[in-house]
Simulated scan of single mutants.
Amino acid sequence: MPHPLTDNLEQLARPVARAAHLEVRSVEVLAHRIPLTVVVRVQRADGTDVHLDECAAVSGPLAEALEASGLLTMAYVLEVSSPGIGEDLLSDREFTSFRGFPVEVLLRRADGAETSHRGHLLSRDEQVVQLNARGRILRLPRGEVLRVRLTEAPSDS
């Protein structure tokens, strides 16, 4: 469950990142850490990785905005970083890089039902995401795909 302040922190971070010509990919509040840690992941609009200097260009102004907002009244650590490659595949680059890797694809059908399929990622284009599910090629309509996530081991579809 996300921390109750996550949405407010993301709203605060977006204009700061935009001023540095970056986009906020995600905001995570790690309340189990002492002190509490706010992780803001930023990227360029084209989805390419950011450099340390770009993270620093967001970190200072974002720290000032956080202090001025009064959202966090306890001690905290602010981390601004690149999202890197996560479990969910989002960009064309990630789909190319992880071709052949085991994935799970979550779909929402037209009737609203959610289903998932597992297999090895073959490709993604404008119409479909293709998997090899135990030797069977699945062509999953891209418009129905909610999420494509890396998995640890291949499994039945």
Rank of each mutant, 00 (worst) to 15 (best):
P4F: 09
F98I: 12
V27R: 05
V103T: 01
A17F: 02
V103F: 03
D156I: 15
I34T: 15
V27G: 06
P2K: 10
N8T: 14
P141H: 06
S155T: 13
D92M: 12
L5H: 05
P83R: 06
P61I: 07
P102Y: 08
V148Y: 06
A13G: 04
H117F: 14
R93Y: 09
S26L: 07
L140W: 02
S82M: 01
T48H: 15
D125M: 09
A56L: 15
R139C: 12
H3K: 13
G70M: 10
A110S: 14
L22E: 07
E114S: 10
E79V: 02
A57K: 08
I34Y: 14
G143I: 04
L12R: 08
Q43T: 06
L9I: 12
A65Y: 04
R93K: 15
D88L: 07
S97D: 11
V128C: 11
S155Y: 07
L52Y: 10
H21L: 14
R124A: 04
T115H: 13
V103E: 02
F101R: 15
L22S: 05
L90K: 06
A57P: 00
G143V: 07
A13L: 05
A17E: 02
V58M: 03
R41S: 03
R14K: 11
V29A: 04
E67Q: 09
L138G: 08
L71G: 00
L9Y: 04
L52Q: 14
L36P: 01
L66V: 02
I137D: 09
L30G: 04
R118E: 13
E28S: 12
D92R: 13
G119K: 11
S69M: 08
L78V: 05
L72C: 12
V50C: 12
E87H: 11
R14Y: 04
A133E: 07
E114G: 00
V105Y: 05
M1N: 13
L146N: 03
H21E: 14
G100R: 03
S59F: 06
S69V: 02
H51T: 14
L106Y: 04
R149S: 12
E23N: 13
L150C: 12
P154L: 10
V38G: 01
L52E: 11
D49Q: 14
T6V: 10
T6K: 08
V16T: 02
L9M: 05
H3I: 13
P2S: 15
R18N: 09
R109G: 06
G60M: 08
R99W: 02
M1P: 13
A57I: 03
E79W: 03
P83D: 05
F101T: 11
S82G: 00
E144T: 06
G70W: 03
P141M: 13
T73I: 09
A110P: 01
T37Y: 09
A13Y: 04
L9V: 12
G47D: 01
L140M: 08
L106H: 01
H32D: 15
R142L: 15
R14Q: 11
G84E: 00
P83F: 08
A133D: 10
L89P: 00
F95V: 05
Q43S: 12
